[in-house]
């Protein structure tokens, strides 16, 4: 087990290191780097001036040298300054990270609870009307474009009914817990809807698979109640693949959060990454993308470890 954990940790670290270089390199290929901006601001700048400026800022050095310089600074705690927020990168990033964890966490819990209720119900009723209805709803949820659902939620609940605010995190001047909760309702509802379809299908498939197995027949034969068979015998075993896939789904949830945060103007990591890229804030974009990568890698790592831990049949090599 120790060997397996170490192996996976190293693998994740390698992916993160490679990605840090690739993202750093890609950032250099963005339109509107500092020199571009200076050229735009001052039409008298000649190409020779631009060349000299590049040399001055070290932008003419080979990419690998620049990357190593950045990495050394980053590892010693200097992540640079955010143009967009006018403060050090980490100070701009951490509040956004907190907001995203709140949004993702609440939506994830809601979605999983809903998925267990509907997934188990569908599996028990396989090939009966309830199963078809749940399956249909799950497929619709999977196929809804998240940005469109967000717009529809805003049109219905903010513009037409006026129940919930369409964007932001709190009313002007701050309004306490209830006020902030009101701003969270639409983003959370949207993210829950777009992720619960997949979750339900995982739970349903895993339950159906488990309910077919011999030990379930044995449990029924010895006279256990249907409720006990489903919730005790089947569910516990069906949980193993479900936990894994749910953790793997984390990256997907993050992508959904990016769109939803952007539309609802919710100041989380997704909106921050989008704004940083669109606003030529490369220091911030670089670090935020690495945070996002580290976050999804951790999700995957946890999925692997959970699987190995929950299922004793897995060999750790």
């Amino acid at each position: 087990m120790g060997r397996f954990v170490l192996d996976r940790l190293i693998q994740s670290a390698v992916v993160l290191a490679v990605m840090s270089f690739i993202i750093y390199w890609l950032m250099g290929l963005m339109p509107g780097d500092p020199i571009d901006l200076m050229i735009n601001a001052d039409p008298r700048l000649t190409p020779e001036d631009a060349q000299r400026l590049r040399a001055l800022y070290g932008l003419d050095q080979p990419i690998l040298d620049r990357y190593v310089n950045w990495l050394t600074a980053a590892l010693s705690g200097d992540l640079g300054f955010s143009r967009l927020f006018a403060k050090p990168v980490l100070q701009a990033l951490l509040p956004a990270l907190g907001n995203t964890v709140l949004l993702l966490g609440l939506s994830f819990v809601l979605s999983v609870c809903l998925a267990f209720a509907t997934g188990i119900a569908a599996a028990v009723q396989q090939h009966r009307p309830a199963d078809y209805v749940i399956n249909l709803v799950a497929f619709v949820a999977i196929s809804i474009p998240s940005f469109w659902l967000s717009l529809m939620m805003i049109i219905l609940f903010s513009v037409k009914l006026g129940w919930f605010p369409a964007s932001g995190t709190e009313s002007l001047g701050g309004g306490g817990f209830l006020d902030q909760a009101k701003y969270l309702v639409l983003p959370i509802a949207t993210l829950t809807i777009v992720s619960f379809g997949n979750h339900t299908r995982f739970v349903r498939a895993s339950m159906i698979e488990t309910l077919r197995q011999d030990f379930i027949r044995t449990a029924r034969a010895k006279g256990a109640s249907e409720r006990r068979v489903v919730l005790r015998h089947a569910l516990r075993n069906a949980l193993i693949p479900v936990v894994t896939i749910l953790a793997l789904d984390f990256g997907f949830l993050f992508s959904g959060a990016l769109v939803i945060e952007t539309i609802f103007a919710y100041p989380g990591m997704g909106k921050l990454i989008f704004d940083a890229i669109m606003g030529n804030d490369f220091n911030l974009a670089l670090v935020a993308l690495l945070f996002a990568t580290a976050l999804t890698l951790t999700g995957n790592l946890l999925a692997d470890l959970a699987y190995a831990w929950l299922d004793p049949r897995i060999s750790y090599r």
């Binding site: 390698v14 339109p31 992508s255 993308l289």
Partner: peptide, 27 residues
């Protein structure tokens, strides 16, 4: 397969946004 696992573990949409915003001339 390690490489494939690595690609699967990446945050898809943020990276696609970066690639979609690239200056192809500079690339």
């Amino acid at each position: 397969m390690r490489f494939t696992d690595g690609v699967i573990a990446l945050p898809l949409l943020p990276l696609l946004i970066v690639l979609a915003a690239l200056d192809l001339g500079k690339a």
